[in-house]
Amino acid sequence: ETEYTFDDKREADRAAKEAQNNGLRVHVTKDGNRWKVRID
């Protein structure tokens, strides 16, 4: 399990989409004014 934090939602969405394309499970959550992408 890996977690990334992004300031920009577009960057978070791009990272999530890339991980999904690689067959990974992805969870995107909002943390204040930042975005967390957790990859299982």
Score class of each variant (00 low, 15 high):
residue 13 D to G: 05
residue 25 R to W: 03
residue 35 W to H: 04
residue 29 T to E: 13
residue 4 Y to V: 09
residue 4 Y to T: 08
residue 15 A to T: 09
residue 26 V to F: 02
residue 25 R to S: 11
residue 4 Y to F: 13
residue 27 H to L: 11
residue 26 V to S: 07
residue 35 W to V: 04
residue 36 K to P: 03
residue 23 G to H: 06
residue 39 I to N: 01
residue 1 E to M: 13
residue 13 D to H: 10
residue 1 E to R: 10
residue 34 R to W: 06
residue 12 A to C: 06
residue 12 A to Q: 00
residue 18 E to S: 09
residue 15 A to F: 15
residue 28 V to T: 03
residue 2 T to W: 15
residue 37 V to I: 06
residue 30 K to C: 11
residue 23 G to L: 02
residue 38 R to C: 10
residue 20 Q to L: 14
residue 30 K to H: 09
residue 32 G to M: 01
residue 28 V to P: 01
residue 20 Q to I: 14
residue 14 R to H: 10
residue 34 R to V: 05
residue 28 V to R: 02
residue 14 R to L: 12
residue 4 Y to W: 13
residue 16 A to G: 03
residue 36 K to Y: 07
residue 5 T to H: 11
residue 17 K to P: 00
residue 3 E to A: 05
residue 38 R to M: 13
residue 29 T to L: 09
residue 36 K to W: 03
residue 35 W to A: 04
residue 5 T to F: 15
residue 12 A to N: 00
residue 23 G to W: 00
residue 36 K to V: 15
residue 23 G to Q: 03
residue 40 D to N: 10
residue 32 G to L: 01
residue 14 R to Y: 09
residue 11 E to T: 08
residue 5 T to V: 14
residue 24 L to E: 04
residue 6 F to I: 01
residue 14 R to S: 08
residue 19 A to F: 15
residue 38 R to D: 05
residue 11 E to G: 07
residue 32 G to Q: 03
residue 17 K to A: 12
residue 13 D to T: 09
residue 13 D to M: 15
residue 2 T to G: 12
residue 37 V to N: 01
residue 7 D to T: 10
residue 5 T to Q: 08
residue 25 R to G: 07
residue 29 T to V: 13
residue 17 K to D: 09
residue 15 A to G: 01
residue 19 A to Q: 04
residue 16 A to S: 05
residue 15 A to V: 15
residue 15 A to W: 15
residue 20 Q to T: 11
residue 26 V to Q: 01
residue 21 N to Q: 13
residue 31 D to M: 07
residue 16 A to D: 01
residue 2 T to A: 11
residue 27 H to G: 04
residue 20 Q to H: 11
residue 35 W to R: 03
residue 1 E to Q: 12
residue 22 N to G: 07
residue 18 E to P: 01
residue 17 K to Y: 08
residue 4 Y to G: 04
residue 29 T to D: 07
residue 37 V to Q: 00
residue 16 A to W: 04
residue 16 A to K: 05
residue 18 E to C: 14
residue 27 H to R: 12
residue 31 D to C: 14
residue 11 E to Q: 09
residue 32 G to P: 00
residue 27 H to Y: 05
residue 1 E to W: 15
residue 16 A to P: 01
residue 11 E to M: 10
residue 29 T to W: 12
residue 16 A to M: 08
residue 30 K to I: 06
residue 8 D to W: 03
residue 2 T to L: 14
residue 26 V to Y: 02
residue 20 Q to N: 07
residue 28 V to C: 09
residue 6 F to E: 02
residue 10 R to D: 15
residue 25 R to Q: 11
residue 40 D to V: 15
residue 3 E to S: 07
residue 5 T to S: 09
residue 31 D to F: 03
residue 7 D to R: 04
residue 19 A to G: 04
residue 12 A to I: 00
residue 16 A to T: 05
residue 10 R to Q: 14
residue 8 D to G: 04
residue 35 W to K: 04
residue 12 A to G: 01
residue 29 T to R: 09
residue 40 D to Y: 10
residue 34 R to A: 05
residue 35 W to E: 04
residue 40 D to L: 15
residue 12 A to T: 01
residue 29 T to Y: 10
residue 2 T to C: 15
residue 38 R to W: 08
residue 16 A to C: 11
residue 2 T to N: 12
residue 17 K to M: 12
residue 6 F to A: 02
residue 39 I to T: 05
residue 13 D to N: 08
residue 3 E to Q: 06
residue 16 A to H: 03
residue 34 R to N: 08
residue 6 F to H: 02
residue 8 D to M: 03
residue 2 T to H: 13
residue 33 N to H: 07
residue 10 R to C: 15
residue 5 T to R: 04
residue 39 I to P: 02
residue 8 D to E: 08
residue 15 A to L: 13
residue 11 E to A: 11
residue 10 R to A: 15
residue 39 I to S: 02
residue 9 K to E: 12
residue 20 Q to M: 14
residue 9 K to N: 03
residue 9 K to L: 08
residue 29 T to P: 00
residue 33 N to G: 09
residue 26 V to N: 02
residue 30 K to R: 11
residue 33 N to S: 07
residue 20 Q to S: 11
residue 27 H to D: 07
residue 26 V to R: 00
residue 29 T to F: 11
residue 14 R to N: 09
residue 21 N to P: 00
residue 38 R to F: 10
residue 33 N to M: 04
residue 24 L to Q: 08
residue 12 A to Y: 01
residue 37 V to L: 05
residue 21 N to F: 07
residue 4 Y to K: 08
residue 37 V to Y: 00
residue 16 A to Y: 06
residue 36 K to I: 15
residue 18 E to F: 05
residue 22 N to S: 11
residue 40 D to R: 10
residue 34 R to S: 07
residue 4 Y to D: 04
residue 23 G to N: 05
residue 35 W to Q: 04
residue 15 A to Y: 15
residue 32 G to F: 00
residue 28 V to L: 07
residue 23 G to R: 03
residue 30 K to W: 06
residue 7 D to M: 09
residue 39 I to Q: 02
residue 26 V to E: 01
residue 7 D to Q: 08
residue 27 H to P: 00
residue 9 K to P: 11
residue 3 E to C: 14
residue 30 K to T: 08
residue 9 K to Q: 10
residue 4 Y to E: 06
residue 35 W to N: 03
residue 40 D to T: 14
residue 17 K to V: 10
residue 27 H to I: 14
residue 9 K to D: 04
residue 17 K to H: 11
residue 21 N to K: 14
residue 3 E to V: 11
residue 35 W to I: 05
residue 38 R to V: 15
residue 24 L to F: 13
residue 38 R to E: 09
residue 34 R to E: 05
residue 37 V to P: 03
residue 35 W to F: 04
residue 36 K to L: 14
residue 9 K to G: 05
residue 1 E to H: 13
residue 35 W to C: 05
residue 1 E to F: 15
residue 10 R to M: 13
residue 9 K to V: 09
residue 30 K to P: 07
residue 27 H to A: 10
residue 24 L to P: 01
residue 39 I to V: 10
residue 15 A to E: 03
residue 1 E to A: 12
residue 2 T to V: 14
residue 4 Y to P: 04
residue 30 K to D: 02
residue 5 T to G: 05
residue 11 E to I: 05
residue 8 D to P: 00
residue 39 I to C: 09
residue 17 K to F: 09
residue 12 A to H: 00
residue 24 L to S: 07
residue 38 R to N: 09
residue 14 R to I: 10
